[in-house]
Design a protein around this nucleic acid. Structure first.
Lengths: 336, 336
DNA sequence: CATCGTTGGAGCAACGTTGTAAAGGCAAGT
DNA sequence: ACTTGCCTTTACAACGTTGCTCCAACGATG
C-alpha cells in the first residue's frame, strides 16, 4: 500500500499535522523535529496523495486543454509547451481532442465542471457563441488563437489580420500579380481574420480582389491544401503566388505544384502560416508566418493560473503575442 | 459552489447513499425513488467529484503517458490515439515529456506513485535497465516501441528487426549497391534493433557491411538527418540508398540531398520509418515503414487497463502489432 | 401465527489531506 | 512565583464519495 502521512508520522514520532507542515513548508517547525520528519520522509518514500489534497483544498490542480488534434504539428508543439508551462506551476494538463467537430467541442465545454479541472485553455474550431452557455459560470477559461466567436473570454493570440497582411505584402513586394489564398471557411474563426488581412494587403497594393483566387478548405490538412492548389492551377489564368492559412495547407500546395511540374518559387510563390519545423525542411523550404508559440503557451498558462488563484472575474483581456515572417526558398527571388 | 450528492439527496428527499446508488447504477432502487433522484440530478446538474470518488475507491482513473516530445509528429499522433482509446474506457491521460533525457525519464518514473496515476505507458529513449528500480513495485507499466532495456515489462511494438529488414530488402531489390543507414546510436533502444535488421538484410544479400555507411545520430530530428546525410554524401564513394531510422531523419536527408543537387530517387533512394503523413507529402514523397499506430494505442491501453483491473502480476508479454512498407516516390524505379 | 428470505433504503465510517483552534512548553516581565 | 505572550505541536473536523452493516417492510412458507 501507499505511504501516507500517518505512516511517516508514526516513524518520526510526531503528529500527522507536523509532517503535513513540513511537507508544505509551512509555519515554524523545530529544527530537531524537522530533521526527524525529513529523514522519515526519505525513509518511507512518501508521496502526497494528490486526490486527497485536492479534495481538501477544493482544487484539482488540473487544466483542460481543448485542441482539434494532437497529431497536427502546430497543436502538438503548442500542447508540449503548455504542458511544460503548467508543470512549472505545479499543474497538470488534461488534453481533450475535438477533431474540429462542434458537437465534441460542445460536450467538452459542458464537461468542464469544477470537479475535474480548475480551468481550461480552449482552441475551438467550430464553436458558436451560443455554445458558451454550456460553460459553468465559475469555470475560468481562456482561448488561444483567433476565433470568430465573440465570447467574453480572455484570449491569447497573435494579430492574425496583421500577420496575414504581412504575408501577402511580402508576396506583393516580390512582384507577384495574381495572389491566391487557400483556407477560406466561414466556420473557422482564423479563416475570417486571415482572409481580411489578405484582402487588406491586396487593396493597399491596388490589386483587384478576384473571387476565384480565394480557395476554400473544409479542413486544414495537407490533403485539403493539395486539392485547393490543384483547382487553382486549373484556372484559365492561374495564380503566381498563394498564401495558405496554415503550413499543412501550404505543404499540400507544394505537393500539388510538384505534381503539375509548376516550379516553386519561379512560377509560384508559396507562403504558409504556423512556422512549423516541417516547413523549414520541405522542398523547397517554406516561407511562413511563425507565431511565437512559446510566448502563447507561457502567457496563456500564466493568465489562467492567476485567474484561478485570484478567483476574481476581472476584465477579460486580449493578450497579443508576437510573430515573425520566416522568409525561405518558397518565396525566394523574383518571378522568372 | 459545486453540487454534491448531499444537495441532490436533499432535493430528492432521499439519503445520500441512495443517490450514490442511482448514480452508480447499483443495486435495486424503487422506480419511484429512482425517478425522483434522476430528476433531482438533472435539476441540479450534478457532476461527481472525481477526486473524492477516487480517494474512496483508491484509484485515480488516470494514466501517465511518457513520451519524448509531443511536437514530434509520431508521438503527437500516437498520443492522440492513446488518449482516444483511454477515453473509451473512462480513463484520462496525463502526458509527461522527457525530451529524450535520461534524468527526466528517471524522475518521471520515480513520480509514478499509486496516488497520481493507476498505471503508465512508457516510451523511453535513454533509460537504462537499472533505472526501473525507481518504479514502485505495484505500479502497472507498459512500454510502447522497442527499447534496449531488458526490463520485465509488457511491451507493445512492431517487430523492429523485421521492419528494418523489410525496408533494406526493398532497397536491395531496387538494385541499390551501397546502402547506408542513418540513426545509429548506442543509447537508443530502437537504434539497435533497426541496425540489426539493416545488417541482416545486407548479409542476406551478400553485401559487405561498410562501417562508414552507418551514420550516427544523436537525436532523431530533421536537423540530425540532414547533417548525417551531408556527411554521407561527402564520402569518396557515396551511397546510392539510405535507410533512415525515422521519418524525420529521412526528411532531413531529403533536404540535404536537395541542397547538394543529388536526385532522389535517381541518384539516391531514401526509406524512412514511422509512416508519418509528412512523408506522404514531402517532395519527393517518402517510402516508409508504417507501423499501425492505432493498433499500438488500442492494444497498449487495453492491456494496461486489464492489468490494472485484475491487479494480478501476470506474465509480462510482448504484444506484436503489424506494420506495412509504404512505397512512394523516394524509392521509385531503378537506379538511373 | 411465527419465521424466514428478499428487496429497498439508510447510517456510519473511512479514504488522506489540511484549516482551525486550542493546548502545551518556554522565556521574559511583573 | 505568577502571569503574559510567543513559539511549537496537537486533536479534531471536514472535503465528497462509497463499502459495509444494519434496519424496515414485505410476502411467502412452515
Amino acid at each position: 500500500m501507499a505511504v501516507t502521512l500517518k505512516d511517516v508520522a508514526a516513524l518520526a514520532g510526531v503528529s500527522v499535522k507536523t509532517v503535513s507542515n513540513v511537507v508544505n513548508g509551512y509555519s515554524f517547525v523545530k529544527p530537531a523535529n524537522r530533521k526527524l520528519v525529513e529523514d522519515a520522509l526519505v525513509a518511507t518514500g512518501y508521496r502526497p496523495n494528490i486526490g486527497a489534497r485536492n479534495l481538501r483544498r477544493g482544487r484539482t490542480g488540473f487544466f483542460a486543454l481543448m485542441v482539434p488534434e494532437l497529431g497536427i504539428p502546430y497543436f502538438g508543439e503548442l500542447a508540449a509547451m503548455i504542458i511544460t508551462a503548467a508543470h512549472e506551476r505545479d499543474r497538470n494538463v488534461l488534453i481533450e481532442q475535438t477533431w474540429g467537430q462542434r458537437d465534441l467541442e460542445r460536450s467538452t465545454l459542458a464537461s468542464l465542471g469544477p470537479h475535474l479541472v480548475d480551468g481550461a485553455i480552449l482552441s475551438p474550431e467550430a464553436l458558436e457563441a451560443e455554445d458558451f452557455a454550456l460553460l459553468g459560470p465559475d469555470v475560468p477559461v481562456l482561448m488561444v488563437g483567433e476565433h470568430a466567436v465573440e465570447a467574453r473570454l480572455d484570449r491569447v493570440a497573435i494579430d492574425n489580420v496583421l500577420a496575414a497582411r504581412t504575408a501577402v505584402e511580402h508576396l506583393v513586394r516580390l512582384g507577384r500579380r495574381r495572389i491566391a489564398c487557400i483556407g477560406e471557411n466561414p466556420r473557422r474563426g482564423t479563416s475570417a481574420m486571415r482572409l481580411q488581412g489578405y484582402r487588406e494587403a491586396l487593396a493597399d497594393a491596388g490589386m483587384p480582389a478576384d473571387a476565384e483566387l480565394v480557395a476554400p478548405a473544409v479542413n486544414y490538412h495537407r490533403r485539403d491544401g493539395a486539392e485547393a492548389m490543384r483547382a487553382l492551377l486549373e484556372l484559365p489564368d492561374p495564380p503566381d503566388a498563394v498564401f495558405c492559412f496554415n503550413d499543412m495547407l501550404a505543404v499540400g500546395a507544394l505537393r500539388a505544384a510538384a505534381e503539375r511540374g509548376v516550379q516553386v518559387p519561379a512560377d509560384l510563390a508559396v507562403v504558409g502560416f504556423d512556422g512549423s519545423e516541417e516547413g523549414a525542411y520541405s522542398t523547397p523550404t517554406l516561407t511562413s508566418i511563425a507565431p511565437d508559440k512559446a510566448a502563447i503557451a507561457e502567457r496563456a498558462v500564466e493568465r489562467l493560473t492567476t485567474r484561478i488563484d485570484t478567483g476574481l472575474p476581472h476584465e477579460s483581456a486580449f493578450i497579443q503575442t508576437p510573430f515573425v515572417l520566416e522568409v525561405r526558398e518558397s518565396t525566394a527571388g523574383r518571378r522568372a
